[in-house]
Nucleic acid binder design. Structure first.
Lengths: 344, 344
DNA sequence: TATTAGCACTTGACCATTGAGAGTGCTAAA
DNA sequence: TTTAGCACTCTCAATGGTCAAGTGCTAATA
């Protein structure tokens, strides 16, 4: 990017654009034809050779056109200002949002539908993750008697996420006892992030090992168990649509993709890392940390409530992705979700 | 099946068996070679022609071997007594079960893992569904204050399934009010199936339209909203493994499969119907009600607690499926789950 | 000096041909 | 009733030849 003349930038941009649109290795002819930049094919050829040397392009074989490398896509994405996205898309988006609004009470179902929408609009895979519970703050905890020796803990968090968990205890507590314990836990921990609470509990438990206010140690034990959640839920949608893309006309690629999206832990980790950063993030092919993703790109954005991330939405597709469109969709979906969370 | 001589049965069985094992259209030669039944190829050819006429076999083209039709598979499955399943498999199964046991408290997570296990063992798709809430009985309902104008209803059912739902109401009820309402609902409805409760509520609501014991009508309204669940959760696992099968070396087939499993409603309906019947059910290709499934087979079994279905587990694969193995896996997994539910 | 025209060269895609192999149906013999 | 033999059909893989696209290089040009 650094040492590229303005002219070469224009040409590289055009080549990537063309390849994204047509999935055909682009030769010097088409560059001159489709994007009239006032150069002859021969000139373009020279420049293309330069660009290849710099690592932005490759040719699949001698005498095919050139294809962008991940670096080429990176250049393209970075120089992608707020490119024209057709107004009509915006209409479609907002139609969908309106439908989604009905589900605002159930954030899980809501994210599921949002995922589907993104995949339909982009023709790539839509993904979404509800917040990793560690980072969210506890609003309230309730304890309910379930059966003898078992209680259900219901956790309310700030984002409207409700989780419950069955906890086994070695004694039979009455609902009254539970109410007292819950009251104590709420007075002590409400308003704190879950991971902080967990730490506090563990510290206190090891300190109190000898002393034994029975009810209190019970409370701690319950609290610890209740907070031992892994991550938030993951949503993935749109596989069948993706298979219609020419990029996936090849068995190997399909297998890679399905393997990638089946590794939920990997995807969760991926999205989790993105949840820290601001705005729409684009990860292109080999920039991915995970091997399974090295041939795909991710466009994702965290949804924030104030300064706290409360979920991530994104799109996964081939490196030859319509980035402009994907970014647009992700950006607006994240914005929409954020708004909804604030307006609740 | 009816008018098949004993000899022809044996041959048909052998052909299906061979095709399942090798995925090669089976010709008269291999039948005589692999399954020494004391006939020459020519005889087998005659019989095969007969079997084709009866609709058990087809040839992909003149001069390929024969391939079973769905009817052929049906014959095979029906005449599949308790065929030898290697003991070693059983070992693997039970190893997995032991691991699963740790999750018994969380039926959702448990079913998810069970699904993965089934897909790994069978190399087909594993599916599982937690009970459709309509059919389950309500054990207890709790109402928790959430925010102003919103309450959370927590439903406990007999299978250890806990669901919660946020309900919007147009007044601000105190936790005390909620406790009274919950108490009333429990005294009235605990122990009844959810769908029955819903009906009762609707009937009562239309009757009470004019009278207005405020709290009571509130209770009814809350109850109605709380019960407006769709279905249970669905689990599907093992897509990437399936793609390694030779049956899915063809784009079209993959697309069909991914389209099918993306239609969650269809799969849920499918499993839901199966949840009524006893034992392991096998649905072969065109026997499926849904178009999307007409080229795949389903082996599934309900898990029952007493006489009530509490979930369905199954395997989805190509019609050329190792039915013996699939049936074995599904049968034992269902048994295992049932046992676990009873032992809780 | 930067650009362009022209040309020889490379390569994959496409197509028709061909031969081998597998399997069939039919007929006649056992 | 079963089997051996044979002619026939069809797929598949390999072969080879043509075509179009696109390149790099060199020499001419502005």
């Amino acid at each position: 990017m650094q040492n590229l003349s303005e002219r070469n930038k224009k040409i590289l941009y055009a080549i990537v654009q063309s390849y994204i649109n047509n999935f055909d290795p682009v030769g010097s002819r088409v560059v001159t034809k489709r994007y009239s930049l006032g150069f002859s094919p021969a000139t373009i050829r020279n420049i293309m050779a330069d660009l290849e040397e710099m690592g932005f392009l490759v040719q699949p074989h001698t005498s095919a056109g050139r294809v962008p490398t991940d670096l080429g896509y990176r250049f393209y994405v970075d120089s992608l200002a707020d490119e024209s996205v057709h107004e009509s898309n915006m209409e479609v988006l907002h139609d969908l949002y309106r439908k989604l609004e009905a589900l605002r009470n159930n954030i899980d179902m809501f994210l599921g539908e949002a995922t589907k929408s993104m995949s339909m609009l982009s023709h790539y895979l839509g993904v979404a993750m509800s917040p990793a519970s560690d980072l969210t703050t506890l609003k309230k905890i309730d304890l309910l008697k379930y059966t003898a020796g078992k209680i259900a803990a219901v956790l309310f968090t700030d984002e409207g996420l409700i989780k419950n968990r069955v906890i086994t205890i070695d004694a039979d507590l009455s609902q009254k006892d539970l109410a007292r314990i819950a009251g104590y836990l709420n007075s002590e921990f409400a308003g704190y992030p879950l991971d902080e609470i967990r730490m506090k509990v563990l510290r206190q438990m090891s300190r109190d090992k000898v002393r034994c206010d029975h009810l209190l140690s019970r409370a701690m034990q319950i609290c610890r168990d209740a907070l031992s959640f892994p991550y938030g839920d993951l949503f993935v949608a749109g596989l069948s649509g993706v298979l219609d893309l020419p990029d996936f006309h090849d068995l190997k690629k399909i297998r890679e993709l399905s393997r990638a999206i089946e590794d939920k832990h990997m995807i969760i980790k991926l999205l989790d890392e993105l949840s820290e950063s601001e705005g729409v993030q684009v990860i292109i092919g080999s920039e991915n940390a995970s091997d399974e993703m090295k041939r795909f790109s991710v466009v994702a954005s965290a949804c924030r409530q104030g300064d706290r991330p409360v979920g991530v939405v994104g799109i996964i597709g081939p490196t030859r992705m319509n980035y402009a469109r994907a970014i647009y969709i992700v950006e607006n979906t994240a914005k929409f979700i954020t708004q909804m969370l604030e307006g609740r």
